[in-house]
Design a protein around this nucleic acid. Structure first.
Lengths: 122, 122
DNA sequence: AATGTTCTTCTACACATCGTAGAACATGTG
DNA sequence: CACATGTTCTACGATGTGTAGAAGAACATT
């Protein structure tokens, strides 16, 4: 199960919210001005590169290797990734119906409404 | 996020599938004859106790401290725990609606059916 | 081609978690 | 009290993560 550390998470968040692929330097700068992590963290570029390599090994990130400063991008959208994780969690339990029942109970009314709409037809 | 190791998982599985609270020795024996873990693992009782302590610290397990061989039991059902995990994952994404859309795309027809039933009314 | 600049990979270390268990301590029984 | 049985403390190796310097590769400029 691909569980992310804090910094890995931060990097993924940036890659997910930024439309274009980013270089390690751009990422370092973005982390420095991070509105998310309260404290502006001044990381070395190599740190960011190490994290990116690890994320690449986990299959969450790819890079354009030809363009000189390599440009990194996420392989899947945050939504796809999150949904996939949810599914991975779901299938760890033998009685999925029961799990879903509890799960439904935990979502907000708005979300329940969304689900109804999505499941609508058939 | 409470992510479990392999042995921790095995122990939780046993606690979840056994109706009564169990002692460390009972757990050790159950693990030895584990039909799940293919290989019969002969663990020391202290190993099991350590794992139980850690699970207790994580809030997944309690024990009756008065009865002499302490009896351990899970705090929540596997279904509750799994549903809670799913919810924790869900809320990591800003656009939950989009996540849910992907998610229901990934569940089986039977599960979708269940969800419809559960959401039915209102 | 030689040199400097920029980027990437290798190597490394500290810290946390987990599997594993012995040593030491506690408790109840004969 | 001595013994058996159970629990806590301490510990060590393996792996994952945050962190970054050192070394190597590639490009631009003279």
């Amino acid at each position: 199960m691909a569980t992310l550390g804090d910094l890995e998470r931060t990097v993924m968040d940036l890659l997910w919210t930024t439309p274009e692929a980013m270089t390690a330097n751009e990422l370092r700068d973005a982390i420095a001005e991070a509105p998310s992590g309260e404290v502006g963290r001044e990381l070395a570029v190599t740190t960011v590169l190490t994290v990116l390599s690890r994320l690449e090994k986990k299959g969450l990130v790819t890079r354009e290797r030809d363009s000189r400063p390599h440009r990194y991008m996420s392989v899947t959208s945050r939504e796809d990734h999150t949904a996939e994780l949810m599914h991975e969690v779901l299938v760890t339990a033998p009685d999925r119906e029961a799990v879903l029942a509890r799960f439904i109970g935990s979502v907000s009314d708005a979300e329940a409404q969304t689900l109804r709409k999505l499941l609508g037809g058939s």
